[in-house]
Amino acid sequence: MKRLMIGMISSLVVCADLAMAATTVNSCNRTVTFEEPPKRAISNDVNLTEMMLVLGLADRMVGYTGISGWKTLDEKMRAGVKALPELSAKYPTKEVLIGADADFFFAGWNYGMKVGGEVTPETLAPFDIKVYELTESCTHIMEKGKATIDDMYADITNLGAIFDVEEKAAELVKGYKSEIASFTDSLEKADKPPRVFVYDSGEDAPFTAGRYGMPTALIEAAGGRNIMQDFDKSWATVTWEEVVERNPEIIVIVNYGKVTAEQKRKYMMSNPAFAELDAVKNDRFVTLEYVEATPGPRNIQAIKTLAKAFSSK
């Protein structure tokens, strides 16, 4: 009987320890509980994959998706994922994730998942694949305030909790905040925030970032104002007439795809319709790479690039 009691007590202690080890995080409008850190994770897109890499999680991953079909990896990213396979050039199918025996998918709405699509947290749940959703992308499925740099910090912090690397995540976020503060405090501030337009792509009509897109947060952190910050979208198309009417002083070009940043700049500089824009008259363009303009570690460099451009005359 005594041995039986000791055995029962030991079992209860083990169960209690396991219960204490469980981690719950908020993911958009859901709460997700992890009984243990994922061991076979997959990330989608270059910026989400880089979040995993800066946390030192490559050895917990079985691959990544959604990069080569849209954009290219720079040298830094190639080195980071060299041991990992790209499982899908664009958005993965459910079969790709199941076939890789994944237990975790880090993606977002329009970053590997589509509302009502084949791959969602609900469709993956029966296969024991848990999903953490990119915070910036939550606006596609719930009410959310405009994008801020805190969205990216939240993702780093939550990934740290999920994978049991909280200290590493906290150190990264603390370092990012310190780096931004140190840099922006050293710059001469403009009398009022410069008017900024984000030019992603498109000639007939421009694709741009609205209030819920990360560029709005980057521009504000750097001391500017997105002229489309009242546009209730993350990324969407507007008209050139709206751009001309709001007359940006600076144009931020997102560099990716077949049309280069320089080709986009030349298009705007040579088109008579844009001749009276302050940004065109003064040739004030600044380029961000896709991985800098979307939520991820390189947002810090993006803010520094923008702040420097905003402070120069």
Results as ranks from 00 to 15, higher is better:
Asp103Leu: 10
Ala22Asn: 13
Thr24Ser: 08
Ile129Ala: 04
Thr184Phe: 08
Leu124Trp: 08
Asp155Thr: 00
Ser137Ala: 12
Lys313Gly: 10
Trp70Thr: 07
Met1Gln: 11
Tyr256Lys: 01
Val62Ala: 08
Phe105Asp: 04
Val291Thr: 12
Glu220Pro: 07
Glu262Met: 00
Ile219Cys: 12
Glu276Lys: 15
Ser201Thr: 13
Lys192Ser: 15
Val96Lys: 09
Lys304Ile: 05
Asp101Cys: 06
Val173Asp: 01
Ala102Glu: 12
Leu218Gln: 13
Met228Glu: 14
Val81Glu: 05
Ile162Asp: 07
Phe310Ile: 06
Val131Thr: 15
Lys76Gly: 04
Thr157Met: 11
Ser270Gln: 12
Asp151Val: 01
Leu87Ile: 08
Thr135Arg: 13
Leu159Met: 14
Gly63Ser: 04
Ser186Gln: 01
Met8Trp: 08
Phe207Gly: 10
Tyr132Met: 14
Met52Ile: 06
Phe127Met: 07
Met5Lys: 13
Phe274Gly: 06
Leu87Arg: 04
Val14Cys: 12
Thr93Gln: 02
Val238Asn: 09
Asp103Gly: 07
Arg40Leu: 04
Met214Ala: 10
Ala307Asp: 02
Met52His: 03
Met228Lys: 13
Glu36Val: 05
Leu134Asp: 13
Ala125Gln: 14
Thr65Gln: 01
Val81Thr: 08
Val243Phe: 03
Asp74His: 03
Ala309His: 07
Arg195Tyr: 01
Lys313Pro: 11
Ile227Leu: 06
Pro297Met: 06
Phe197Ala: 06
Lys2Val: 11
Ala217Arg: 10
Phe104Asp: 11
Ala147Arg: 03
Trp109Asn: 11
Gly80Asp: 01
Leu57Thr: 00
Gly56Cys: 04
Cys15Gly: 13
Ile303Glu: 10
Ala273Phe: 13
Asn47Phe: 13
Pro85Arg: 00
Cys28Gly: 05
Arg265Ser: 05
Pro38Asp: 05
Glu136Leu: 02
Ala217Met: 12
Glu245Leu: 00
Tyr176Gly: 07
Asn282Gln: 14
Glu133Ala: 10
Pro121Gln: 04
Ala302Tyr: 00
Gly80Leu: 00
Asp191Ala: 14
Gly108Met: 00
Gly69Ser: 09
Gln229Phe: 11
Lys192Val: 09
Ser137Gln: 01
Val46His: 04
Asn110Tyr: 15
Asp185Ala: 15
Ala58Cys: 06
Ser10Ala: 15
Thr24Gly: 02
Thr49Ser: 14
Leu159Ile: 05
Asp45Lys: 06
Arg211Ile: 09
Gly257Tyr: 05
Ile303Phe: 12
Ile253Asp: 06
Arg3Ile: 06
Ser178Trp: 08
Met152Phe: 14
Asp155Arg: 02
Pro194Asp: 05
Met228Cys: 14
Ile180Cys: 06
Glu292His: 09
Leu53Pro: 03
Ile67Leu: 04
Ile98Thr: 12
Ala147Gly: 04
Gly56Lys: 05
